[in-house]
Design a binder for these strands. Sequence first.
DNA 1: GAAAGTAATCTTGTATACAAGATTTTAGTT
DNA 2: AACTAAAATCTTGTATACAAGATTACTTTC
Lengths: 217, 217
Amino acid sequence: MVFKKEIMNQLKEEILSLRLTPGTIISETALSERYQLSRTPIRDILKQLSLEDYIHIYPKKGNIVSYIDLESVEQIIYLRYALEKEIMKELMRGIPLKDLHVLKDNLLRQLQCIDEPENTDAFLELDDEFHKTMFILAGREFLWELIQQFNVHYVRYRKLHMLKKDKLKEIQQEHQFILDCIVGGEEGRIDELLHHHLRSDIRFIDFQEPYTQYIKQ
Amino acid sequence: MVFKKEIMNQLKEEILSLRLTPGTIISETALSERYQLSRTPIRDILKQLSLEDYIHIYPKKGNIVSYIDLESVEQIIYLRYALEKEIMKELMRGIPLKDLHVLKDNLLRQLQCIDEPENTDAFLELDDEFHKTMFILAGREFLWELIQQFNVHYVRYRKLHMLKKDKLKEIQQEHQFILDCIVGGEEGRIDELLHHHLRSDIRFIDFQEPYTQYIKQ
DNA sequence: GAAAGTAATCTTGTATACAAGATTTTAGTT
DNA sequence: AACTAAAATCTTGTATACAAGATTACTTTC
């Protein structure tokens, strides 16, 4: 028995990983046959996917995997920038040694992923884990999960962006700076650090072929 | 012909206004008969309502209007606090006179609503309009709409909170301070202002009967 | 009368037939 | 060959019958 949640997570994963490329047609009957389920529960899944912007439903025509919306990417980055500034201030007021160790351990694992191009996905997961941990330590896991619900465009953008040049080393170092800042307590540097870490790249977007066709016009 | 969107907006409005009180049973067949529609489209509506936390679906048991989740309220307030701080900084860099007039006009209309207890709802709408306008002027309407999707708990909390004591005058004055700050340019006061405006009340929640039964335990 | 077990009746979940719009194909005409 | 029009075939949207779990009511038993 295949559960609806499994199917949905599987579809989400395939879309986020870009194995299902933007524009791909997702028909109810195809999924229905693939998973040996009637159209009704399949429709439930597609409805939810459309609400989270994974797909776009054209009534009586069909459903396609959504194109990457750069406007959404920029807005989500701004949201994270504003939030994480506040969260860093919170953590600077004092962070337990045990929790500090969790973050340091994460950075070590990031280092191990660098220079191994096949480990880009693993690095991105550690990146997420680093930021999520900060959210959790500040008592803001709720907001982290909230943002995740609007991450379709950002996650895919980041994946393409990472492929372009190998920025992994740079990102890892910035994470190190962030951690140093939390421990060292230079509140004045927070804005500059996060601005560069999150917002600096978005202005210079120019994806090469064949990725331009993934972008919403 | 009754459209699905109309039905959903109607249900949302009834829940937000507390005419449909938390805990009220919402059965598919009841709605089906009320709107002369089959269960299938009704289920679509309920599915979406549950994703936005308006209702809670208990599989094979039934659906109820969700209870007010104070945790969600606090988190959303924190989110707005962090975001609006950033937005105010943005607006302080310069705001067109025309746009300034829009905000000033809004504050005048707020004044007119005060002292007329039957106009509390109108005041709340103007409150939203004031903040939304700031988002729009800073180019962040996207984020305003994003927050709206998680507002079920906050909107209902605020409604009850406003009923308690008449805080309308105080709120209007704080809006005035915010506007003065944007024009005057005292960046140091932003944090203090918004902290008081958004976050100060949430700690002292103690709803009286009969409202305690609306709150999620 | 109290407790237990069973049956009836609720609820939502799923499968399927049909409706209706959009697209594609095909046949016919010029 | 090119254009037009109609028909066939896609698609999703809706209605409805049935499935299955949860609750309620009732009957039986002690």
